[in-house]
Amino acid sequence: MQLFELTRALVDIESVTGNESGCAGFLRDYLAERKLEVELVPVADAGAGGRANVFAVCGTPDVVLSTHLDTVPPFFPAREDSDFIYGRGACDAKGIIASEVVAAERLLGEGARDFGLLFLVGEETLSDGARAANAAPRGSKYIINGEPTDNKLAIGTKGILRLDVRTRGKMAHSAYPQLGESAIEKLLDVLAEVRRLPLP
């Protein structure tokens, strides 16, 4: 398939977060037909749905091209006009998947044997596919992650830090609050300090 045809085919596969298996299966078959070694890597907390990342390699990868399979709801299929392809995920990130797959096909045609593709589940919510990939790395020197960036090269990405903050207090009857110690007030003090932190 050429780039636009592949993009439309991917967009037409509903893959709202939690339901990526159809898209993963399509890519597994498509890439295996092109003689890449393809592995569906189960995501540990996938439950009965059998969600899995798609990891495909040609040789030992120095570079891995990556993005995600899932989309936000609601699903709507592809359509196009003379300028654009529309549909859920056309930009984020099924058009990117198609671009990376076409790049892989060109690399194969040129004899390259040192690259891989990694397509993740769950990026739109809890990044469970990325966590699974990090927990069981397959190895490469570099990763190029495809995300819409207005066609500008980005050398970093936003991250997330989740904290569990607990404070302790001392219970007292509401008639005698001065005998207690408010855990909520302590938490508010912590939150005020966090808000004052300089962030990049």
Rank of each mutant, 00 (worst) to 15 (best):
Q2D: 15
Q2T: 11
E5N: 12
R8V: 08
R8D: 13
R8I: 05
A9N: 14
A9Y: 08
V11S: 00
D12W: 09
E14W: 05
S15T: 00
S21K: 10
F26P: 02
R28Y: 15
D29Y: 01
Y30A: 07
L31H: 04
A32G: 08
A46N: 13
G49E: 11
R51Y: 00
A52F: 01
N53H: 06
F55Y: 15
F55G: 03
G59E: 07
G59P: 08
T60Y: 11
D62S: 12
D62V: 10
V63P: 09
V63L: 13
V64M: 05
L65M: 02
L69Q: 02
L69A: 02
D70G: 11
D70N: 12
V72H: 06
V72D: 07
V72S: 06
P77M: 06
R79H: 11
E80N: 10
D83M: 09
F84G: 05
G89T: 01
G89I: 00
G89N: 11
I97R: 01
A98D: 03
S99W: 01
S99I: 05
V101M: 02
V102Q: 09
V102A: 09
A103K: 09
E105T: 13
R106Q: 08
L107G: 12
L108V: 13
G109F: 00
E110R: 15
E110Y: 06
G111L: 02
D114L: 00
L120C: 11
S127A: 13
G129F: 02
A130Y: 04
R131K: 08
A132Y: 01
A132K: 03
A132D: 04
A132E: 07
N134C: 14
A135H: 09
A135L: 14
A136K: 13
P137R: 01
S140H: 09
I143K: 05
N145H: 02
P148Q: 06
D150M: 10
N151L: 14
L153G: 07
I155G: 12
G156T: 07
T157V: 13
K158Q: 10
I160E: 08
R162M: 13
L163N: 01
D164V: 09
V165K: 06
T167R: 00
R168G: 12
G169E: 01
K170G: 08
M171K: 08
M171Q: 14
A172H: 07
A172I: 07
H173V: 03
A175L: 09
Y176E: 10
Y176M: 13
Y176I: 14
L179T: 10
S182A: 13
K186H: 10
L187G: 06
L187M: 14
D189Q: 14
D189V: 15
V190T: 09
A192D: 04
E193N: 07
R196F: 11
